[in-house]
Amino acid sequence: MNPVNYLYLAALLFTIGATGVLIRKNAIVLFMCVELMLNACNLAFVAFSRMHGNLDGQIIAFFTMVVAAAEVVVGLAIIVSLFRTRHSASVDDASLMKL
């Protein structure tokens, strides 16, 4: 199969993720969309790795997974503590940082 198709898929996934981040309010969904974007990038990296015939892309994909895992740990903790105090997982309720 032509590896370019994987890139189209990655772009599609990324777009879905990005749209989800922009239009959804629920923090969990938001979070999943971010993960989707990250994984779209991973897919692209792996596809590029295959296309160029070296392993750099795959190594970076591993880095991304580690970052994503760490992000999930910290992000979920924040969401849980937010939900505890505010009884809502909506990101619009957490706008206290504005000036």
């Binding site: 990101v91 706008s95 504005k98």
Partner: peptide, 17 residues
């Protein structure tokens, strides 16, 4: 300029994108 800083994560994301 301050008005841009509305605290909604989404709008920050839009500007990033």
């Amino acid at each position: 300029l301050r008005k841009l800083q509305n605290g909604y994560a989404r709008s920050y994301a839009v500007s990033m994108f």
